[in-house]
Amino acid sequence: METEFADVAEEPAISSIHDRRTVRRVTWRPPPPGWIKCNVDAAFLEVFFGGATAAVFRDHAGNLLTASNSKIAASSPLAAEALAVRKALIIAKNFQLKRIIFESDSLILIQALKSKASIAKIQVILDDILELARNISNCGFTWVPREGNALAHEVAKLTADGSLRQNWPRCKPQVIMNILKEEHYMSLQLTNR
């Protein structure tokens, strides 16, 4: 009986280890050649009715082209995310970028942008985003899990707590360097498959 119990007790442990090995890790994926990907995120601090936005532009090789981070006033996390996308579109328009994918981990926002749905609390920002997007040829919006948006997430978080300066793309902190290295390595793994 003890042997049978031990065999049964070990089965779930063995299968859960096997399940963990087969789960794929979500990571940043580069855009197709000739395209630019802009990952956006926001950090919202409810006590301050504000937070910070981040927009990180990279090419198909994972090279950092430009980036933006700033503190904002916002009424909700969704409004902060929408302001981050709006700011990224303004940058793209100013640099006259074409063939660009805007990626966010805010599923509600991306669904609203793709379907052109109304969200009363942020409708003014949504209207701005859609108008800006119309002026950029070959522009699209995609959703990514937070793990695939690590760099923009970290930039927004560090900006919100005041520990990241505006010039961070030139003077990258170690935490940012680590994310860039890891994502570059993972993107090389994906392209070599």
Rank of each mutant, 00 (worst) to 15 (best):
M1C: 10
M1R: 10
E2M: 06
E2I: 07
E4Q: 12
A6P: 02
A6I: 14
A6W: 12
A6K: 14
V8K: 12
V8L: 13
E11W: 11
P12A: 08
A13Q: 08
A13D: 03
I17R: 10
I17Q: 06
H18C: 06
D19M: 14
R20C: 04
T22G: 08
T22K: 08
W28M: 13
R29C: 13
P31D: 06
P32K: 12
P33Q: 13
G34N: 13
I36W: 04
N39E: 04
D41T: 08
A43T: 08
A43W: 04
F44S: 02
L45S: 09
L45R: 10
E46T: 15
E46A: 14
T53V: 13
A54P: 00
A55G: 15
F57R: 04
R58M: 04
H60W: 15
H60D: 07
H60A: 02
A61K: 10
L65Q: 03
T66C: 12
T66R: 03
T66P: 00
A67L: 13
K71A: 13
A73E: 05
A74Q: 09
S75G: 10
S76N: 09
L78A: 05
L78D: 04
L78C: 11
A80F: 05
V85I: 15
V85G: 02
R86H: 08
K87W: 09
A88V: 02
L89A: 03
A92V: 09
Q96E: 11
L97Q: 01
I100A: 05
I100S: 01
E103H: 07
S104R: 01
S106G: 03
S106H: 02
S106C: 14
L109T: 03
L109Q: 03
L113V: 10
K116G: 14
A117V: 11
A120C: 12
K121A: 14
K121F: 09
Q123F: 12
Q123E: 15
I129F: 11
L130G: 07
L130F: 10
A133L: 11
N135T: 12
I136D: 02
N138L: 10
C139K: 05
T142N: 06
W143P: 00
W143E: 01
V144G: 01
R146S: 04
R146F: 02
R146C: 03
A150V: 06
A150Y: 02
A152W: 00
H153M: 03
E154I: 04
L158P: 00
T159E: 01
A160K: 06
G162L: 13
S163A: 14
Q166M: 13
N167T: 15
R170A: 11
R170S: 13
K172V: 15
P173M: 10
V175M: 03
I176N: 00
K181P: 00
S187R: 11
Q189K: 12
Q189D: 02
